[in-house]
């Protein structure tokens, strides 16, 4: 059976276009030759750029709209990256992440754990979040959250993916919880992954992790191992991911887009 085709894609306007430039440069630097498609209002070196036009930024739900545009591209798998991702090494066979599921969503914290120290996610009490997921058909004992900086979708499931995501979002909105794109993304993960436990961060830490605590704050990741802190429990696990979602390094990402900027060595 032939290897399925894939591309990276993103939506990046304003300063995010510069971050995307850095993201793609970092990918090329470690030998990633895969196509990048970006919906943007700028020209981004190394990317196939598509006009983003004006769109509603609220709650980041635009990602789902643009997924349907990306699904028209001639690739079987569509790998979404937020602009503030940085490659420190080649991620290898990225599609292995899907484990034959039509999507991969990196499930992070188990919101059912009694030892969670954070009581809520996006203002929703964890017990309520779990109940919302149950109401919409999630059966797994563990119910996870996610960070929406990296996910993979097979183009043939894109429409269903978006429908499920928006059904969940609408339901939560009616219950008084107008989530960002992350909760519906986590929901779709639970519905489409087959074995959600195979898609947790702990099981996939060599590929991608989100530096939400700012281990690399204001600088670019250097490829070293670092501690990922579980958003809910506060537990630490060591990670050395090929792609770092350096969400606390946005200024450094913008600055690195300049050709005279010195990049870290690793």
């Amino acid at each position: 059976m032939s290897e399925p085709s894939m591309c990276y894609w993103s939506v990046a306007d304003g300063s995010y276009a510069q971050m995307m430039t850095t993201c793609i440069m970092s990918a090329r630097r470690v030998g990633v030759a895969t196509d990048f498609h970006v919906w943007t209002d700028h020209s981004i070196p190394g990317a196939v750029c598509h006009p983003s036009g004006s769109y509603e930024h609220r709650n980041y739900l635009f990602k789902f709209d643009f997924l349907l545009k990306a699904a028209e591209l001639p690739y079987e798998y569509l790998v979404f990256l937020d602009a503030d991702n940085f490659f420190v090494r080649h991620p290898g066979r990225l599609l292995d992440q899907t484990r034959d599921a039509p999507i991969h969503v990196c499930l992070e914290s188990d919101c059912t754990q009694p030892n969670n120290v954070r009581p809520d996610w996006w203002g929703c009490p964890l017990s309520r979040y779990v109940q919302l997921m149950r109401d919409c058909g999630v059966l797994s004992r563990s119910v996870f959250n996610t960070n929406a900086g990296f996910w993979i979708v097979h183009r043939d499931v894109a429409r269903r993916f978006v429908d499920l995501a928006m059904e969940f979002w609408e339901y939560c909105n009616c219950q008084g919880f107008p989530f960002t794109e992350e909760a519906p993304l986590a929901y779709v993960g639970h519905m489409l992954l087959g074995n959600p436990y195979a898609h947790t961060l702990a099981m996939n830490r060599e590929i991608w992790a989100s530096d939400w605590t700012g281990v690399f704050a204001d600088r670019l990741p250097d490829g070293s191992s670092w501690n990922f802190t579980d958003y809910m429990s506060g537990d630490n696990i060591p990670v050395q991911s090929a792609i770092v979602h350096c969400m606390r390094s946005k200024k450094a990402m913008v600055a690195a887009a300049s050709p005279i900027r010195k990049w870290p060595t690793y």
Partner: peptide, 11 residues
Amino acid sequence: YPEDFPVFYEA
């Protein structure tokens, strides 16, 4: 049929 039917079986 659940959304993840074939991958559930295989998993």
